[in-house]
Design a protein around this nucleic acid. Sequence first.
RNA 1: GUCCCCAUCGUCUAGCCCGGCCUAGGACACCGGCCUUUCACGCCGGCGACAGGGGUUCGAAUCCCCUUGGGGACGCCA
Length: 503
Amino acid sequence: MTDTDKREEVRVRFAPSPTGYLHLGGARTALYNWLWARKTGGVFILRIEDTDVERSTRESVQEILDGLTWLGLDWDEGPHFQSHNLERHVEAARKLLESGHAYRCFCTREELEAQREEAEARKIAFMYNGRCRDLSQDEIDRRLEEGQPYVIRFRVPRSPLSTVVFEDAVFGRMEKRGQDIEDFVIVRSDGRPLYILSNAVDDFLDDITHVIRGADGIANTPKQILIYQALGWKPPVFAHMPLTLDSKKAKLSKRKHGEVVTIAYYRRHGFLPWALCNFLALLGWSSPDGTEFFSRDELIRTFDLSRINRSNSIFNYVPGDPKNWTDPKAIHFNATYIRTMPVEELAPYVEEELKEAGLWKQEYEGEKRGWFLATVDLIRARFHTLKDFSSRGRCYFSQEFEYEEAAVKKNLSKEPRLRVYLPDLAQRLERVESFGSSAIEEVFRSYAEEKEVKAGLLINAARTAVSGTSVGPGLFEMLETIGQEEVTRRLRGAISLIPSSEN
RNA sequence: GUCCCCAUCGUCUAGCCCGGCCUAGGACACCGGCCUUUCACGCCGGCGACAGGGGUUCGAAUCCCCUUGGGGACGCCA
């Protein structure tokens, strides 16, 4: 462990605003916080920052909860709702006002807007000019009496030497001169506190020890530290994670990239939740020995804030590429997990998928449990997502499946004699006492010899006849799995796909 | 425009803090080959990067400076 976790109990939080979907960036932030909490034996808090009433929705809250639950990122406290703490935020603002760390600003939106535009036009940086910073008490009282609306601004120390310094757990020592920070607004003219204040107050109230968030929060950090200091609170450790950008180096957003950046999308497209987590963990973090695949416990053990990267990473998704419908490495992680995890652990996911596709049979958890597991094990090596079990794997679970045109053309329609061979094989297979792969193989091999044809011809034809495709596991295992009765039925049925020799 | 941050294969990255072990390692993707009844898997091999320029040093991917490029923040949003 690093020196960032000296305190007794680590307390971290994931604090999304419920204004949209849970997306990859948010999930990664949640994951890093969760990992840090689990690693240190600390507490992971979920806080919904819903103070933007115009944009916050209940559906979004539910989506976030569902997404985190699906990913397996369980939280220990919450969800807390920021809006429930409004009085505490206002109270903090009042204290800041009383102690002189904040002041009332009577400048109107229109005035500020005009100043902003002018600055823009003259291509100079806009920063609030501090006009209300030193209003006399009489002046303030007079304006209050007149009922003039005001916002509350934080009085940023203006001495030329004043600097806010903090040690970021990822970026190291960070410094910001007071003169480069404007007197930021902490309370709106309608009395509602702003994020910058609410967030800091909530972190204090929740006893947050480590703020692990996206690097877009860096600019807020000096301001929030100022708030902490003015209130006499000890600031938490900040750890800013690099951002994840798209292939054009723009920030990932649902608006711009659509579903592909949402967690729900991966769930719908047959991702294993942990495969996604594992992939996400590696976007901006790496293990000391280069290991890439981790179980939960291994990742928890290995994860460390000090190994978080400082440079942004790119989510390598290229729109319009059907093969790479998301980052290829993400697909690779999913496929590898599907192929290598214990089949018993994979089974529940396949079950869910088959149920959704209407292919699930009750007996798969009863007398055919063994068959089900063996079949999943047989076919999974070629699959990339859970969806493949109900699409490409359909012929194992249903009597109804599609014949691929290309496969039929390649393996069936070229050879008219298959109209004889296939029923012959069916007849012989029917007579096999114990329908196992070696007995099946024997039937094929001897028949091929007898008819003086290549075994491959029969094998490929049979593959297409029973599965509709030209690819798949070894034929004999495949036939064994599909079963004697069904195999012979399909072999006979397939002759309708073979043209007779006259044609 | 101002402030801040970042910079190694197409992508994710190791190495950088504590210069030499780096003719820069791994992973994904891609391309070959082997295996094979097909497709995968697996194995073997290939392609492919220290942004540029100055320093410092016997020696720089590693330290310093500049340039360039990229990103972020500049709201009475969060």
